[in-house]
Every structure is written in structure tokens, then in C-alpha cells.
Design a protein around this nucleic acid. Structure first.
Length: 642
RNA sequence: CGGGGUGUAGCUCAGUUUGGUUAGAGCGCAACGCUGGGGGUGUUGAGGUCGCAGGUUCGAAUCCUGUCACCCCGACCA
């Protein structure tokens, strides 16, 4: 493998404005100090198609390179801090396709590490000559990419109300899948669902000191009970009838539920109470981001009350395990379990535990939390019971939740520059069949063949019951319990359009069926995850075949994400090392650290990184705190976070 | 809440500096034709109170004031 320090291929050629110069412009795309490709300079003929003379002659991106046959082209030269290095496939493909987020960096780095082949195989891309038109590449603008993916997949839309979002059917289907899976897990662990009200008396919030502190700043307050016409201007409505006590819209329900539990619990025989609620909550956020942080969001909050501290602790840990397993098994997102530092814990909790996931840009995302609330809320709300020893005791409570943020995590963990990539277990459409034909006769034979494939995949019975689908498509249940569907895209649009359409929506599998396939008795099966294709004989199609395929995809997505996680977790011995890692790579930095509000605040100011958690797997022994240099028994994970 | 940026057709934008025909383009959308194995093509057509509210002016997308929304960066947070 060449690690030449020869001059860059494009060196000396200036990125001129003529179209023929596009190739070299691409070679010389600016790269920042950590190797990320920077946005095209203004005026570049590629990034500004309108600047190209003759619209129809405008080059596609990438420009007419050498073409597929000669792909990969001359190796891309990429300057690093110390030397210039020749990128080899798959690096070129990655770079070429603009996949130069930190992921691609991982691929790159791996070429010199022990796991190179493993990772390279997982990130192998079929080189393409066209990129998604409506999605910005991760390497160019990660934040925009995220928004573009959501838009292209029609997961959500902005609402007229600041900070709120509309979850569109495609996005809500993911939430439904999350709900279905989690709800089963909650019930398996003995919980039941209930519903508590949206509005909470303002006075409730003040009963737990830390809790007020934590949430007061972001509460929406209801102060009036009606609107009336302004006498001066009848066209204007103004609030009237002030409430005696203002109500707040729940930012979380500990207080309301604490209040109710106090009434429901009399004796140790009433414990434990194991209740979950699926609800919306509202936190008036300064800065919002679709799914990751919106003013109103959907979540699930479990609230339990127990007789002993041990029981509460066991519950807290059990639910954390439920979340971790769920994240991996349903969303294919590997997570790190750990405990929050005091600075990061939930206001009002004794201890907060969390699962932390790592996004492709190297930032961490808290994907779920489980709190041991100790007796804080039971004391504040007087959740008292008569114990076995005939004395009054305060219950021990817990709470735990995950939110629609998980959808954001899922998007950022798996999607690529072509759009959404759905983990199969939460995909509402698992497979789309795309017919290809020219004449009416071909249409008939192709559709007849597709009918056979559908029957083979979903069974004769389901195949005979077409579901009503908008947009002139045929839709069938693949799984009647999860409501996952198979769609035959019979719309009268070009096959290429359909490919992009379903690709951007993250559908795990597509089958393309044209006259050639009918003649050969096969379907051309395409995988979304890695764009691989294979011909599959009609007689191989069956529900089990598809299930197996979906399982494969899930396993590989999880494995890919695990490799990324482990590759992006580095250890630092010194504060300087940590800074360098954060600067150069992002991701998690594992180090000895004595948790302390002051140190954490200083480190955050200097590096933007915070202690994401104190992971459960501690090496034991003692080390030198990275910040103070004092001996400590604690290792933590630092990272920038969402 | 502070700093920066942007609001013109569904989307991306031009036009604003220097006020002046009926506000434009590409994509998308609708209909029809040729097509159809990764965003093809031709014809025709629909679509805009220029974010909103005031003001200056004979005349405002353009100038002034206010306001709202969105995006980015900080502080805060799931």
C-alpha cells in the first residue's frame, strides 16, 4: 500500500472555471486539518451548475470522469498534517462519494490498522456516478445532511409553532415500531400502562428543590382559561379569566405521579407500583433540532415506587438494560451503559444512569436514561407506607424514559449520503418491488411474475388482499403483527425515480423485475445497506427468505455501528492527549477522571466535551486524574454531545 | 437569551448596492406524446398580496422602522 509522500496529483493545476477543469477541481477540494473535505469554494463550476454555459451541457456531479469503466480514477491525493498520502479503495470510493465524515476517516485510518479489511468490507460502496440531488453530503455539511435526510424521507416537517415539529406518517411509523417493541419489553418486566394529565399545578413543581431548579426555566405556563375579543379591536383575541393557580404543561411527570402515588400507597402490600405512560411533554428549548430536541416531544416515562432502596436500584438497572438491549436489537445502535456525574444527572435524582450512543460525526447522544430517585420525591410528595415493621416509611422511586430522540439517533447512526437507512426491525416497508417494462405485453408478463413473487413472499392469502395505498401502489402485509409491509410500486413514473424514492426512505430491500428477469425466472434483489445486488430465483422467495435477509441486514448494521463505536473510542493519559483526540477525531475519550462540577465546567469551556458517563466496565485500580493529576479510581468517557 | 446569516412560485435561487414596463430562471407539479434496467425527452399549462406590519415616495421586492420565522455558532437542556 503506497503511503507515498509524492506531490498531490492535482498540484500545480489551478481549479479553473472551464468545465473540463472539473476533474481537477474535485481532486483539489479543500480539506481541513482533520481531513474533512470542506465545502466547494463559491464559483466552482460544479457546485454552481447555473454558472455552466448551456444548461443541458451542464455536467452531472461528479463530472464526466473517466466514467464507470475507468473507475477508480487516478488515486486521490489527500494531504494530512505530516505528509501526503495516496488513498486507496475503498477510501477513494468513500471520498469520491463525499462520505468523508468521520466514518470515512475511520475507514481511512483502518487501512493502517488491524481491522482494515473488516471495516473496509462493511463500508464497501458501489461507486456511483450520480449522487442524491436533494441531500447534502455529510462531509460538506453534517447538520444540513441530517435535515435533508429527514426531509427526503418525509419523516417530519416544521410546524408553524417555533420549536415544534410535525411527525409525518413515515416518521411516526418508526415511533410506532419503537413503541411496539418497548411496550412488550416493559410488560415482560411487569409494568402496566396508564395516563396522567398534561397539566400540572405550578405548586407541584416547587416541592422538590433540585427539580424546580432543573425545569423552571423551560416550562410553558397556562395562565388563562379563555379568549375574548379585545373591545378596542374586535379582530384581536386576548386571554381572559386568569387562573387562580397557573398550570404548567408537563416537562416530565414525576410531580403529578408522585402526588397520585402518595394517595395510592398505604402499606408495603401496595408496593411496588410499576407504571409506564406514553405521552407528550413540553420543554421550552432555546435551540431545537428535529427529533433531537424539540419543544414538544413524544416519549415514554416509567415511574415506579418500591419498598426498599435495593429494589429501586434493581429496577433502575433493569430498565437501563432493557433500553440498551432495545437500542441494539431494534435500532441496531450499540450503546454504552454508565452512570452520570452529579453535574449531568437528572434534577431530583439520586443517581442517573444512561445509555450513550455515538453518531457518525463523532458526537455522543444520550439515548435513554434511568433514574434512581431515592426518597427525594416520596419525601416531597409524602409517598408513605406502613412497613412490615409497622412503622411509616418513605417509598423509593425510580423513573426512566426514552423519547422520539431515538429516531434522530437512528438516523444519525445509520443513514448515508443517499438518505435514510432503516434498521429492518423498525422499517414499516421492508421491501419494494419495482417493475420495469416498455410495452403493454411486457407489462403484463412482468406484473404476472411480480404477482408470483409477492405470493411467495407474503403468502397466497395476504397476496390476495391488497391494502389500500395512496399513490397507485399495491401494498401487502408481510407481518400482520408488526404491520410491516411489502409494496409493489406500480406508479407510472420512471424506474430510476422509484429507485431513488425508496432508497431515500431507507427501505431495506428492493426487487427490480423486468423482462430479462422474467425470462430468467429471477428477481434482481438490491440491498439498501450496501447497495449490493443479487439475482434470486423465484422458487427461493419465501417469508423465511425475506426474514433471513432482514436479519442479516440488522446484524450487519449493528456490527458496523459497533466497529465504529470501538474505533472511535480512544484512551487518553493526559489532558493534552484528550484535547488532541477530541480535536483530531472526535468520538469518545476514555480516561481517568475524578468527577467534579468545577473541573467538568472548565473542561467543557476549553474543549466543548462533557463527561458522557462513568461506564460500568471499570478497569479497577487507580489512575491519575487527567485534569487534577490526583489519584482517582474512576474512568469516564468524555465526548462532545448533542 | 447573546452573536452571525437568510426570508421572492412546492424547492434552489437571480433581481435589492443606484426605487421605475405586467417580478424572472432552473428544478418540481398537471395534461398529452415519445419513452422506460438509477433522476430521459418534447409540447402545453397551472402556480407569487416578494415573511408580516407600519413609514418615506408620483411610484417600493428594492429605502427606513418595527416585528416574526428559519438556519449556524455560543449559553441551557433528553
Amino acid at each position: 500500500m503506497p503511503t507515498a509522500s509524492s506531490p498531490p496529483a492535482g498540484a500545480g493545476r489551478s481549479p479553473g472555471r472551464s468545465l473540463s477543469a472539473c476533474h481537477f477541481v474535485l481532486d483539489q477540494q479543500p480539506i481541513d486539518r482533520v481531513g474533512r473535505i470542506r465545502p466547494w469554494p463559491l464559483g466552482c463550476p460544479i457546485s454552481r451548475r447555473s454558472a455552466c454555459p448551456g444548461r443541458s451541457a451542464a455536467p452531472r456531479f461528479p463530472p464526466t470522469l473517466p466514467g464507470a469503466t475507468r473507475f477508480p480514477p487516478t488515486p486521490l491525493m489527500r494531504p494530512t498534517r505530516s505528509a501526503t498520502r495516496v488513498l486507496e479503495p475503498p477510501n477513494i470510493h468513500a471520498a469520491w462519494r463525499g462520505v468523508y465524515g468521520r466514518i470515512a476517516l475511520a475507514v481511512d485510518a483502518s487501512c493502517f490498522g488491524p481491522r482494515s479489511r473488516e471495516i473496509a468490507a462493511l463500508w464497501r460502496y458501489t461507486p456511483r456516478l450520480a449522487m442524491a440531488k436533494n441531500i447534502k453530503a455529510r462531509s460538506v455539511d453534517y447538520a444540513q445532511w441530517y435535515l435533508d435526510v429527514i426531509k427526503a424521507a418525509q419523516l417530519a416537517d416544521y410546524s408553524p409553532v417555533r420549536g415544534c415539529m410535525v411527525i409525518r406518517p413515515e416518521g411516526y411509523a418508526i415511533w410506532e415500531a419503537i413503541q411496539r417493541d418497548l411496550d412488550r419489553r416493559f410488560k415482560e418486566t411487569g409494568h402496566v400502562n396508564a395516563y396522567f394529565p398534561l397539566l400540572i399545578p405550578q405548586s407541584f413543581l416547587t416541592k422538590e428543590a433540585e427539580h424546580v431548579e432543573g425545569f423552571a426555566m423551560e416550562c410553558a405556563v397556562v395562565t388563562h382559561s379563555k379568549l375574548e375579543k379585545d373591545p378596542n379591536n374586535p379582530a384581536v383575541l386576548r386571554p381572559a379569566s386568569p387562573l387562580e393557580e397557573p398550570l404548567i404543561i408537563r416537562p416530565t411527570s414525576e410531580t403529578m405521579i408522585g402526588h397520585m402515588y402518595a394517595q395510592w400507597v398505604q402499606s408495603y402490600r401496595d408496593l411496588p407500583i410499576l407504571i409506564n405512560q406514553w405521552a407528550n411533554v413540553m420543554r421550552w428549548e432555546m435551540r431545537t433540532r428535529l427529533f433531537l430536541r424539540t419543544s414538544e416531544f413524544l416519549w415514554q416515562e416509567g415511574h415506579t415506587a418500591h419498598e426498599t432502596a435495593d429494589e429501586a436500584q434493581a429496577e433502575t438497572m433493569q430498565m437501563l438494560d432493557v433500553y440498551a438491549d432495545f437500542a441494539e436489537q431494534a435500532l441496531a445502535i450499540p450503546v454504552i451503559k454508565g452512570r452520570k456525574t452529579d453535574a449531568e444527572k437528572f434534577p431530583g435524582a439520586d443517581t442517573t444512569y444512561c445509555i450513550e450512543a455515538l453518531m457518525q460525526d463523532g458526537k455522543a447522544l444520550q439515548a435513554g436514561t434511568s433514574h434512581n430517585l431515592g426518597q427525594n420525591f416520596s419525601k416531597a410528595f409524602e409517598i408513605k407506607y406502613l412497613g412490615r415493621d409497622n412503622t411509616q416509611q418513605f417509598a423509593h422511586t425510580t423513573s426512566w424514559g426514552v423519547s422520539t430522540r431515538l429516531i434522530g439517533a437512528m438516523i444519525m447512526a445509520h443513514s448515508d449520503d443517499d438518505g435514510l437507512v432503516l434498521p429492518p426491525r423498525v422499517a414499516s416497508v421492508v421491501l419494494v418491488i419495482i417493475p420495469v417494462f416498455k410495452s403493454e405485453e411486457e407489462r403484463a408478463t412482468v406484473m404476472a411474475f411480480i404477482d408470483k413473487i409477492v405470493a411467495a413472499l407474503v403468502g397466497e392469502k395476504e397476496a390476495s388482499a391488497t391494502l389500500r395505498t395512496s399513490g397507485d401502489m399495491q401494498s401487502y402485509f408481510f407481518d400482520k403483527i408488526t404491520h410491516q409491509r411489502v409494496i409493489v410500486d406500480t406508479r407510472d413514473v420512471r424506474p430510476g425515480d422509484k429507485q431513488y424514492h425508496w432508497e431515500q426512505r431507507g427501505v431495506p430491500f428492493r426487487i427490480e423485475v423486468g423482462p430479462r428477469d422474467v425470462a430468467g425466472g429471477v428477481g434482481l434483489v438490491k440491498r439498501r445497506l450496501d447497495r449490493s445486488k443479487e439475482n434470486v430465483q423465484l422458487d427461493q422467495f419465501s417469508p423465511d427468505w425475506l426474514r433471513g435477509k432482514l436479519e442479516d441486514v440488522h446484524t450487519q448494521m449493528l456490527e458496523k455501528a459497533r466497529l465504529f463505536l470501538s474505533d472511535s473510542t480512544r484512551t487518553a493519559e493526559t489532558y493534552d492527549q484528550m484535547k488532541e483526540i477530541l480535536e483530531k477525531h472526535g468520538g469518545f475519550v476514555r480516561c481517568w477522571f475524578e468527577p467534579n462540577r468545577d473541573s467538568e465546567a472548565k473542561i467543557k469551556t476549553e474543549t466543548k466535551a462533557t463527561v458522557r458517563c462513568i461506564p460500568f466496565d471499570q478497569p479497577g485500580g487507580e489512575g491519575k486524574c487527567i485534569f487534577t493529576g490526583q489519584p482517582t479510581r474512576t474512568q469516564v468517557l468524555f465526548a462532545e454531545s448533542y
